[in-house]
């Protein structure tokens, strides 16, 4: 489903290169975890997939089902089924969650040539998703993320994901700032959305999220490249030993 080939990306403003030849393939139904030390380019990767304009792709390609995303606007990527769960979800005072989600759902439907969803049908769907994720209704009436706790913001991201039903879900440090209970709620949400036709790319600094969302593949990102890929055991190894040994190995390898 997702294929990233030799991706180079820089900060648009100052031209600083962050991703330096990154390769990744993810099939439908798979969960891929991207781990790495701070500053390795994890969040940049997530944002580049979603089309954030603060980064510029200078080389390589990001393909969804063989079609390049690189030249597409963020909304066009969303129409094709890309979703980014933000590390820092944005507060939008003055706009209710319900309005926001309905406008988003209908924007997606419009782009796909489907009829607009009526309010009764929409509310029914919202109620189902609230139930599926074990959330509370009052969240829907509140302004988007305004005054939400860290945990509520992350849950709201997962809720949006459930409502918009993307095919490729990219989670950017969804576990950061969460206590263990909140982490579990978020993980349960993600697990409820795991389907054979959906792929996940989960960016995380810590292994602990992967205790709850068990990945099929783990990749280690360092200095803008994936330096090691493996199964779940790779994450556990990183948890026990940190990133230092891998950094040393990579350094030795590049000198050899």
């Amino acid at each position: 489903m997702l294929e990233i080939r030799d991706l180079h990306a820089s900060v648009t403003e100052d031209g600083r290169e962050i991703l330096k030849g990154l390769n990744l393939r993810a099939q439908a139904g798979e969960v891929h975890a991207i781990m790495g030390p701070n500053g390795s380019g994890k969040s940049t990767l997530a944002n580049v997939i979603a089309g954030r304009e603060t980064y510029e792709v200078t080389q390589g390609d990001v393909l969804l089902d063989g079609e390049s995303l690189v030249e597409l606007d963020p909304e066009e990527r969303a129409h094709k089924g890309v979703f980014l769960a933000f590390q820092y979800p944005v507060e939008i005072p003055g706009v209710s969650n319900t309005y926001f989600l309905r406008a988003s759902v209908n924007a997606l439907r419009e782009a796909r040539g489907e009829p607009e969803m009526g309010s009764a049908e929409f509310l029914k769907m919202m109620r189902e998703k609230v139930k599926l994720l074990g959330l509370s209704d009052d969240m829907l009436q509140r302004s988007v993320n305004e005054g939400f706790s860290g945990g509520e913001k992350k849950r709201n991201e997962i809720f949006q994901m459930a409502v918009l039903e993307p095919r490729l879900c990219v989670l950017d440090e969804t576990d950061s700032g969460l206590d263990i209970d909140a982490l579990q709620v978020v993980a349960n949400g993600v697990n409820a959305l795991r389907t054979p036709d959906r792929a996940f790319v989960i960016v995380t600094h810590y292994q602990r999220l992967l205790n709850f969302i068990v990945p099929d593949f783990v990749h280690v990102l360092m200095n803008g490249r994936i330096v090691r890929s493996g199964g779940r055991e790779l994450a556990l190894e990183l948890e026990n030993q940190g990133y230092g040994w891998l950094e040393a190995e990579v350094a030795a390898g590049s000198q050899a």
Binding site: G51, R52, P74, R77, A78, V90, A103, S104, A107, L164
Partner: peptide, 12 residues
Amino acid sequence: PLFYLRSRGMPR
């Protein structure tokens, strides 16, 4: 915020 809304499918 603009990117946030657009990433959910809303045209610019």
